[in-house]
């Protein structure tokens, strides 16, 4: 690795408040713009990455029956104020394979940045894939994020994805995930995002439970304040017997912010069962007053409630 690449990798991790990954048993990939700066693999995991004009195109494969013990670290980012980064990913977790990925996307100085992610994901029979994506943005919110994923879960597969924005303003975000779930597969899709200023948040999560006893949970927790807007479209379609699903959407709004949720539950088999829950509004007064009875001010209590709502499930 050149010194220049090493320095860039250090700066990417520094922007998310972390040190570089050095443990040899941890696979990691670092991408700045369209440059693959670092790539370290472990047994059973294959990654091929091609640099394109404005991003990368990568193929990730976990070989049959291989369990990658330690979560893989991926870091995508752009340190300058302006630019485009398009990521194309093909992920294939072969039968019985298992992997967890922690991906950080960092645009700490963004003024005008476009980041797109276009992923095709296949989780094979009895395989498991966990993908946690964490975003760090700049203070000005000048980022447009467009993540799209098509997911296929084969029989007995498990897939969980969490999308979180932990620091900075959203800018514009347009998430579009679609999953097709085979027999006995388990899908958990969650997005937790907070918006402020003039942020625009659009989240679309769709899943079809088409295999017998497939299970799916779509969760969206959003907190918006100031002039931010959020629109959530969650659709869960169940067509197989014993399919079980739940759509959960919570949005807290403050100030002049606006939020809209459209949960669609579509059940086409008498032995399937899907539920949904949507709550949009200000912070629940009982939650608020309980913390205020602990001595927190209304602002402190609100912050703690929102922080909980946006933190990954414990």
């Amino acid at each position: 690795m050149s010194d220049e690449h090493g320095e860039m990798i250090r700066r990417l991790y520094a922007s998310i408040g972390e040190a570089c990954v050095i443990e040899p048993n941890v696979a990691h990939v670092e991408v700045h713009g369209n440059r693959v700066l670092g790539l370290h693999l472990v047994d059973g995991l294959k990654v091929e990455a091609d640099e394109t004009d404005d991003g990368i195109s990568a193929r990730v494969r976990v070989e049959p029956g291989r369990v990658i013990e330690t979560p893989v670290r991926i870091c995508f980012g752009l340190l300058p104020e302006r630019g485009v980064q398009r990521i194309k990913m093909d992920v294939d977790i072969a039968e019985g394979g298992r992997v967890a990925v922690l991906a950080s996307c960092t645009f700490p100085n963004a003024v005008q940045i476009l980041h797109t992610m276009d992923a095709d994901i296949r989780v094979g029979k009895d395989a498991q894939y966990l993908y946690l994506e964490r975003h760090v943005h700049g203070k000005s919110g000048g980022v447009t994020i467009v993540p799209k994923a098509r997911v296929i879960l084969e029989e007995g597969a498990r897939f969980r994805t969490d999308f979180e924005l932990i620091r900075g303003l959203v800018g514009d975000i347009d998430i579009d995930y679609h999953a097709v779930c085979g027999p006995r597969s388990v899908l958990e899709m969650a997005a937790r995002v907070s918006g402020a200023g003039d942020d625009r948040i659009k989240i679309r999560e769709e899943a079809t439970l088409e295999g017998e006893a497939a299970r799916g949970v779509l969760t969206t927790n959003v907190a918006v304040r100031e002039r931010a807007r959020a629109e959530i479209f969650n659709t869960l379609l169940a067509t197989a017997p014993y399919a079980r699903g739940h759509v959960d959407c919570k949005e807290i709004i403050q100030g002049e912010a606006q939020a809209r949720a459209t949960p669609i539950v579509d059940v086409r088999h008498p032995k399937a069962h899907v539920t949904h829950e949507a709550a949009i509004g200000s912070v629940d007064s009982k939650q608020l007053e309980t913390l205020m009875a602990h001595g927190l001010t209304e602002e402190e209590a609100t912050e703690l409630i929102i922080e909980g709502l946006l933190s990954p499930s414990l």
């Binding site: 927790n221 919570k250 629940d284 009982k286 939650q287 007053e289 309980t290 205020m292 009875a293 602990h294 001595g295 927190l296 001010t297 209304e298 209590a301 703690l304 409630i305 922080e307 909980g308 709502l309 946006l310 933190s311 990954p312 499930s313 414990l314």
Partner: peptide, 28 residues
């Protein structure tokens, strides 16, 4: 005084049906 100021003077209350919080740990 609103509830938080009463609390800061030293009074508090445990609800008949306590509130629940998503994502907030028992410790926090």
């Amino acid at each position: 005084l609103p509830v938080d100021q009463r609390a800061r003077r030293g009074m508090t209350m445990a609800w008949q049906e306590p509130a629940r919080y998503e994502g907030l740990s028992v410790e926090r």
